[in-house]
Amino acid sequence: MSTSTPTATGSEQVRTVQQKLEQLRDLFADAPEVGRKALENVLTELKTQVSEPRTRMESAGRVGSRQGNVSELTIIAPFAPGGAERLRAFLQLLDGNFDGANKVGSLHDMRFVFLDNDTKLLFCTAFDGDWDPYIDDFVTQIPDYLDILSCGLEGWPGIRSPEVKDYLARHQITAEGWYVAHPDLTVADISRLKRVGQAVDEFLDKVGD
């Protein structure tokens, strides 16, 4: 399966805001009335917003998008026979407690969605920086968890295989749209800011007493 699409870079970016808006209006001419009206209602506001972008979607390497320090990874891969059942049992055991992911230190979230009657897995995550420079670290540090999570997928070569990067890139699809509240903050930054916030509160509590 090769469904990757180009990211919003290159020719996409050179198109002016005006051209993009015009194209949108053209496309919405055929939209249901509620949609057409809604677009007219927000058109001025939309124009201001996109003229002064707060952030920009960049490429996160081979596939995927990146905003500031944060990248997105979306994978759709077919399950091998019995794979869905095994993965579901493992995920139910963890019940949201991914200590291994905590250890990785760069994962903002992960989502496992079973599609089409348990025949495919949709996996989505937001993470800091790039994952592929760390593949050797995963191999020596947490190989078992990655193989347990992925061995139910058809053709999974094993985390130790030199093919693993190609396997993931082959099944990865770049998101068309993606929102990040704080593109400048890594997981480590957020943890630090929490600690700093608590320390400042303690300090202020003492000063204010």
Partner: peptide, 11 residues
Amino acid sequence: VMTRLADVNVH
């Protein structure tokens, strides 16, 4: 103890 999982021996 680093904030990102890494194996010092592979770099």
